[in-house]
């Protein structure tokens, strides 16, 4: 049942934009590993700020491309719910830094409503969380790109919707993304530490790739894994326990919103000639609840 699969279709310009921003994001995170010593020494202090500004701009451009002129009121409302759920969970978990169950909502939204919505809702959930907690800073663009990518990936996972495998695949995905998110998010400030990092764990400009990778690996093990592993496990467990029910909630919501159902104006018999909605393929579509019913929930 793929009613809401193409709520925000990713057309080729948007797909290219997301791809290029993904590449720039990857460069923004991994540049310390492949630049020469001169470049690293000259720009080591400015690069994180440069990339924060650049990624902020690119994330916004990317959002504009993905959503260009194609969001109707229902999509906005559903995105709002995803953003609110993500932001609210962020607000709840503000005391326990690292334990962020936010991704669990983003993953489910991306899974049900497609990669386009996954990307936008991931980016918006992070933004909403930051606005709610008053935590807007240079880390926000990096988080937006990462969370957007997580939602996008969840939409692209090659498992059949509603199958038994889906639950386990999503749980595994949640665990992996929880770890990878931390792995990448450290990288934006790690070169910053420079010689300030613990012995043998710092960024050495111009050192061979494997040296820096080894140093970073140790740094990750020593400082970050303790936060990332619980977060990944928590998200995976949440997906396992609540995933199927939540997927159903989102699918039902998407079906009731009846995305992509064309509005057809037809002369109706009798005096009630109000426009009504007709599903495009009656045998394939579920019974459509007219939108005005949603205002008076039963």
């Amino acid at each position: 049942m793929m009613t809401g699969r193409r709520v925000i279709p990713l057309r080729w310009p948007a797909a290219v934009a997301v791809g290029v921003v993904g590449i720039v994001g990857l460069v923004a995170f991994t540049w310390p590993f492949f630049v020469t010593a001169d470049v690293a020494r000259d720009h080591g202090n400015d690069a994180p700020w440069l990339f924060a500004v650049l990624l902020g701009l690119l994330a916004v451009v990317c959002l504009a491309e993905v959503t260009a002129g194609r969001l109707d009121a229902k999509t906005i409302a559903v995105l709002g719910v995803a953003a609110a759920a993500g932001g609210g969970l962020r607000l709840l978990s503000a005391g326990t830094a690292g334990l962020e169950p936010m991704f669990f909502v983003v993953i489910v939204a991306g899974r049900v409503l497609g990669p386009g919505v996954g990307f936008v809702s991931g980016a918006l959930a992070v933004t909403t969380g930051a606005l709610l907690t008053g935590g807007v800073g240079p880390w926000l663009p990096f988080q937006m790109i990462c969370a957007g990518g997580i939602g996008l990936g969840a939409g692209l996972l090659p498992v059949r919707a509603g199958s038994r495998v889906e639950r386990w695949a999503l749980a595994a995905y949640a665990l992996v993304t929880g770890l990878v998110f931390g792995l990448f998010m450290n990288l934006w400030f790690w070169p910053f530490l420079g010689t300030g990092a613990p012995t043998g764990m710092g960024f050495v400009p111009g050192a061979p790739l494997q040296d820096n990778l080894a140093h970073y690996g140790l740094f990750y093990l020593a400082t970050s894994l303790g936060w990332d592993l619980p977060r990944g496990v928590l998200n995976a467990v949440l997906v396992l326990v609540a995933g199927p029910a939540l997927l159903r909630v989102f699918r039902r919501g998407a079906r009731r919103a009846a995305f992509g159902v064309p509005v057809v104006f037809a002369p109706a018999p009798g005096r009630d000639a109000a426009p009504h909605r007709e599903p495009a393929e009656p045998h394939d579509e579920p019974p459509v609840v007219p939108l005005h019913d949603a205002e008076h929930p039963r």
């Binding site: 916004v60 969001l71 995105l79 709002g80 719910v81 609110a84 918006l124 909403t128 709610l132």
Partner: peptide, 16 residues
Amino acid sequence: TLYDVGTAVVVGLTFA
């Protein structure tokens, strides 16, 4: 251009 996205964020901020 970002009017829709901004609205979604405002909806999110109100709903949270």
